[in-house]
């Protein structure tokens, strides 16, 4: 059966993260926890990370419900940001946001996203951008740098314990 780029999003890599997630756990010693929701989709993710003494992310995890795109994307993100500072993680989250919105297409630049770069084809599925972006946007909010901000990162350690971030207003998102 013919598939377009839309079907291509459901790559073996994404589906492996969905069926066998590595970071779908509760982090008891979280330094920072933040919830992100897509009200129109029902995606609801809580992202947590703990910091090592050197200020880098020692562990990261996600909890919540949603579609394969939001969950697989969250799992890939956790994998990517461990060992980095929150500021670096926020910068990568902004890069991911630009990728799925189709604003950054340079393969060399996107290589930094490692496995998550396989979600580039989401940029051709405007209704699903919010799903893919949710975990990353939530992470960026934790570090105090929204993904829409293309300026220099101003991230410090997140202080937003258990606050709720809402991704609203994307014109392409399905609503009812």
């Amino acid at each position: 059966m013919a598939t377009t780029s839309g079907g291509g999003v459901y790559s073996p890599a994404l589906l492996e993260h969905v069926s066998n997630p590595d970071y779908h756990v509760h982090l008891d010693d979280a330094t920072c926890t933040h919830e992100g929701v897509n009200p129109s989709c029902g995606d609801d993710l809580t992202i947590s990370y703990s910091l090592a003494p050197d200020g880098t992310i020692a562990d990261a995890a996600w909890e919540g419900t949603g579609c394969a795109v939001s969950q697989g994307s969250a799992d890939m993100m956790c994998d990517l940001v461990i060992g980095r500072t929150p500021a670096e993680a926020a910068r990568l989250a902004r890069l991911f946001g630009r990728m799925v919105r189709g604003e950054e297409t340079d393969a060399d630049a996107l290589a930094e996203l490692d496995e998550a770069s396989c979600l580039e084809s989401i940029s051709h599925m405007p209704a699903r951008v919010k799903c893919a972006e949710l975990a990353w946007r939530t992470l960026a909010e934790m570090a105090g740098t929204p993904t829409d901000d293309d300026g220099a990162p101003t991230a410090g350690e997140g202080t937003l314990a258990d606050e709720k971030g809402t991704n609203g207003g994307s014109p392409a998102a399905p609503r009812g």
């Binding site: 598939t3 780029s5 579609c67 795109v69 209704a127 399905p174």
Partner: peptide, 18 residues
């Protein structure tokens, strides 16, 4: 939403959501 996206790739348009 995953169901609808995969169906869309197969040129089948349905609604998904609430």
């Amino acid at each position: 939403h995953d169901v609808a996206s995969i169906l869309d790739a197969d040129h089948v348009a349905i609604r998904a959501g609430h």
